[in-house]
């Protein structure tokens, strides 16, 4: 059950996206997010949908997996849709429906749809570009290198990157361990599904206590293991894999640049119901 959470999980593979330089992926991912907010009309959104579908295909990740990762968004989506549905288009809006004092405009419906689409694309695009096709290690590697200039103003970039690497590295382990403890307590008849809120919260104690204890133990063991190998932070440390930009990365830059240009053009000349 916990294993089904796919958010932030790496799917090993050998696709175009998998082999891109993680630094470039990170930069392009930021550009992609900016683009989502630059896009205005139905036409520019359609272009981004096409682009996103393209990168999903290029990543070799199944659409089903992506839909599954969108599940946790359902409440935000419903909330956004309802809020935007009653958006007041003003005098020149096309009235679709009047419910007492509430009026639903065609513009409101489109706005609601586009807003939800924006959230879906934000999630789907970034997870495919960063989470699913980039291993956590290379991701933090990229972050460390992109933020390296901050070292000049005495921010310990390496330490932060190491902390992040470890946190990411242990998410699957933590989930696995949680599942194990849940199973062990279930085998002793623990009941997490029935009872009121207080009873359910209490039922979590047998999971949380062993989990905390094992995490502290793990942290201590890890720290000892690192010290045994003379870990002293980033100074003078060399890397096993040095990142290089390749033609693949320049192709990706070109694709995103074209997308950017396309959106700007569509926004300007074919804005069709812009929000």
């Amino acid at each position: 059950m916990l294993k089904d959470i796919t958010l932030g999980q790496y799917f090993p593979g050998n696709s175009f996206l998998h082999r891109m330089d993680p630094r470039m992926k990170l930069i392009l991912c930021v550009v992609y997010i900016v683009l989502l907010f630059v896009a205005k009309g139905i036409t520019s959104f359609a272009l981004i949908v096409l682009f996103t579908a393209g990168i999903i295909l290029a990543s070799g990740i199944q659409f089903r997996t992506i839909f599954k990762s969108l599940k946790p968004l359902i409440f935000i989506l419903i909330f956004t849709t309802i809020l935007n549905l009653f958006w007041n288009a003003g005098e020149d809006g096309t009235v679709l429906l009047k419910l007492g004092r509430l009026t639903i405009y065609l513009e409101g419906v489109i706005r609601a749809l586009l807003m939800s689409l924006r959230i879906i694309l934000l999630m789907a695009g970034t997870t495919v570009i960063l989470m699913y096709t980039t291993s956590p290690i290379s991701l933090t590697d990229a972050i460390e290198q992109l933020f390296a200039p901050l070292n000049k103003i005495k921010i310990p970039v390496h330490t932060f990157a190491m902390m992040m690497t470890m946190a990411l590295r242990f998410i699957p382990t933590l989930l696995e361990e949680t599942q194990k403890i849940i199973n062990a307590q279930k085998a002793r008849g623990a009941d997490f599904e029935s009872g009121n809120l207080i009873a359910r919260a209490k039922a979590l104690v047998p999971i949380l206590i062993p989990l905390f204890i094992s995490q502290f133990r793990r942290a201590e063991e890890l720290a000892t293991a690192m010290e045994c190998r003379s870990y002293r932070g980033g100074e003078g440390r060399t890397r096993m894999t040095v990142l290089h930009f390749s033609s693949r990365d320049y192709i990706a830059v070109l694709a995103v640049a074209l997308l950017f240009a396309g959106i700007l053009l569509l926004n300007r000349y074919l804005p069709f119901y812009s929000i």
């Binding site: 403890i181 062990a184 085998a187 008849g189 047998p206 206590i209 062993p210």
Partner: peptide, 20 residues
Amino acid sequence: IRNVRFAVGLVFQYPEYQLF
């Protein structure tokens, strides 16, 4: 299914980590 779990007791590997 809980009744089955009472009839079939399962001790996991390294069960000491489930103590709380």
